[in-house]
Amino acid sequence: MTLPSDMLKLIPALPCDVEGPVFREPWEAQAFALAVDAHAKGLFTWSEWAAALSAQIKAAQLAGDPDTGETYYQHWLATLEGLTVSKGATSLDQLKQVQSAWDRAARATPHGQPIVLENDPLAS
């Protein structure tokens, strides 16, 4: 599934080569896919996405982000978090709770085994 180039063009400063988006690490591609699919399922429009992402990046730059591309997908994730909350798909509280559950699960998982949410000792 390749994104149409007119959609990609709307996104500010997306790391690309001649053929399309490039990622430095696997999680970046996962973050990319999350936003693309959430958009496809109608959570937000693509122009809403592009606007929110530019705002996020501008704010980060003002706060002293070196903007070397290494932090790009951190801004991407923060944008997705913000939009998911503002669209009412979740609340900040709920997000924090799930985050803590993942943290606990990661700590409770023996080294070398896949981390799954069920490993959270507080999971019922």
């Binding site: 080569d17 696997p26 999350l34 693309v36 959430a38 798909a89 979740t90 799930v98 559950a101």
Partner: peptide, 29 residues
């Protein structure tokens, strides 16, 4: 966490995510 929430609410689906990532798998690293 974000992925878990979006999955639970049906805003993303795992097969679609795999498909997107697969498209770009040669573009990572």
């Amino acid at each position: 966490a974000l992925e878990t929430v979006l999955l639970a609410k049906g805003y993303v689906d795992p097969a679609a995510l795999d498909l997107i990532v697969e498209t770009y798998e040669t573009k990572i690293g």
